[in-house]
Design a protein around this nucleic acid. Structure first.
Length: 297
DNA sequence: GTCCAGGCCGACA
DNA sequence: TGTCGGCATGGA
């Protein structure tokens, strides 16, 4: 007897749009997209629960537990995870209002209606993903991430497919640069990831403590103290993990290319030009960035 | 072979 | 405070 949980979703949420984003790389190891269904292994209070997400009707997500059943408290945690994953608490009316008056955003919001920022629940995973993505192409970042997961993550086999959890910082903190170098990470990326793992294990930084700060600017300052975390990485993590709708990875080459593509510019825009454009998106710059990323797929 | 890819650090002025 | 070279790798 499989257990099903339903999650009510807001009007301007389009599960299909999010699935397209989630399905952008064949090297993804942390979820599987298949026939409008999404499967992900969740770590709920230490229990590894394989969840299948689908959308039987527009206003609902249905979560089917494939390998176990969940008690009330676990069910609540699964629902909370889903609501965070697809940023369902957000009222997007402000974003669409801004978008309606902006040439670039109006184009993107029409192209990807109901797309929401797909969040990364785990701070360590978000930091690692950003560090891996520094200065290399995304597909190679996926290659590196898949190697880390397959070497150090926990897994569950179900009906012939393996589902993975991202490695715990406690595991990664014990590694040496030499070990990560063998996965073709650079010296720097290896040092940064081991350092971040240690910082999290020692409680120097945590998602909870960052979320308890008065504002995202303060959280950004804390993130910047980590070795290997610069402005781009800090803003990326604020956007993907901590739930800022306004964080903006200004230096992002991908964003620059997306703007070039959408506005049919002959060259990539300068930083000043990007900053000027983003000036029209204040309050919703993370959403603008996420829609721009989506336009590169 | 060259250039680019969802940057960051440390040195130096 | 602002700028610049070095880093290291895979793919086009």
């Amino acid at each position: 007897m499989t257990q099903k949980i339903t999650v009510n979703t807001p009007k301007d949420f389009n599960f299909q749009q999010c699935l397209i984003y989630l399905n952008r790389s064949k090297l993804e190891r942390l979820h599987v997209v298949e026939n409008d269904r999404l499967r992900k292994l969740l770590n709920i209070k230490g229990n590894h629960i394989l969840c299948e997400f689908s959308q039987p009707i527009m206003s609902q997500l249905e979560i089917t537990l494939l390998n176990t059943t969940a008690a009330k408290a676990e069910q609540s945690a699964i629902i909370a995870h889903a609501r965070e994953w697809f940023d369902l608490e957000r009222d997007l009316s402000g974003f669409y209002k801004i978008a309606s008056k902006d040439k670039l955003l109006s184009q993107l919001s029409r192209a990807y209606p109901g797309l929401r920022i797909v969040r990364i629940h785990d701070l360590f995973q978000a930091l690692c993903w950003a560090i891996l993505g520094q200065q290399i192409n995304i597909e190679f970042a996926y290659t590196l991430q898949s190697r880390i997961i397959e070497n150090y993550g926990q897994k569950l086999a179900h009906e012939g497919t393996i589902y993975w959890l991202f490695p715990q910082p406690e595991i990664m903190a014990t590694l040496t640069v030499r070990e990560l170098r063998q996965l073709q990470l650079t010296n720097k990326k290896s040092e940064y990831i081991i350092g971040v793992a240690n910082a999290i294990c020692k409680g120097i930084i945590s998602k909870k403590s960052l979320q308890n700060l008065p504002d995202f600017d303060t959280a950004q300052k804390q993130l910047l103290k980590l070795h290997g975390v610069g402005p781009w990485t800090a803003n990326y993590v604020l956007m993907r993990c901590l739930g800022s709708a306004d964080a903006f990875p200004l230096e992002d080459i991908g964003l620059h290319n997306a703007i070039k593509k959408s506005l049919h510019l002959p060259e990539k825009p300068t930083i000043d030009k990007v900053q000027k454009l983003a000036g029209n998106w204040v309050g919703w710059r993370a959403y603008a960035a996420f829609y721009l990323y989506r336009s590169l797929q």
